[in-house]
Nucleic acid binder design. Structure first.
Lengths: 132, 132
DNA sequence: CTTAATTCCTACTGGAATACTAGGAATTAT
DNA sequence: ATAATTCCTAGTATTCCAGTAGGAATTAAG
């Protein structure tokens, strides 16, 4: 029952982006947040594919939020980097599991999704970023 | 973001136990639910340690619920077989992560826990068990 | 028009967690 | 006595995910 590291890192990275309207390079975020730059690349490619961020290539390039911070929710982030939220790996051939899914897991999923949607980047107080 | 297989199997097994006041053997549950009997043994030993079920050893032995179905929640089951629910593997040395945990993850955890506590075995309509 | 800094793309590797198996001892109803 | 069961301890297999790697493409700046 875990939110992935990808979601955590992505959230932290997007919070950094939300502090600037100019492109920020992966290396800067990586340094500031102590997250592997290579790993952040993977994450950013997904965030970009989901149109949460845009990029500028080349020297002085970097990433910018594609939306207002208030329009990016934890759910958007999780969906982007981890795909659809699934609370259980049910065996869809098993009627007992189908039953449990419908009765229990699906409602939990819906509750969680609604809650994650309700938390946007502005709902998280700005972290003191010291320098960037 | 997954509920474990252990929790799913345990829930299904306890639902079976809730249909009888006589001991039911692992083999019967295993056959009915198509769950490995050996794996169920592991799960039942945890459920027993948490006093959700009691056992009778020997020939004609088996397991019985130790409480009324209405007094066993999905949370109890999850806690028993998987230990405390933790929504994120945060690095406790990292202040950024501590911050996110406090702001976001902890509230999600609490929401989930409350919800899982609110679902007891009677809240799940009885599955048609055909024979047992 | 070269250089340095960056994103972009595709794939691979390592390790941890978890699902599942195995052997045999202890217990007990019949 | 026997057969059926739980109990205990340990092992194996598999899957998932975090993290790494190399190098191509792009571009600002001098």
């Amino acid at each position: 029952m875990k939110l992935s590291t990808k979601t955590r890192y992505a959230t932290r990275a997007l919070l950094v982006l939300s502090t600037s309207s100019n492109p920020i390079a992966i290396k800067d975020i990586s340094d500031d947040q102590s997250i592997s730059a290579r790993y952040l690349e993977n994450i950013f490619s997904k965030l970009k594919a989901s149109k949460l961020i845009t990029s500028s290539i080349g020297n002085n390039g970097g990433y910018i939020l594609a939306k207002k911070p208030s329009e990016i929710s934890i759910y958007d982030i999780s969906l982007s980097v981890d795909g659809p939220l699934q609370i259980a790996n049910i065996n869809t051939n098993n009627k007992h599991e189908q039953y449990l899914y419908k009765q229990i897991y699906n409602p939990i999923e819906e509750l969680l999704i609604e809650y994650l949607k309700s938390i946007d980047l502005t709902a998280i107080e700005t972290i003191d970023l010291e320098s960037i």
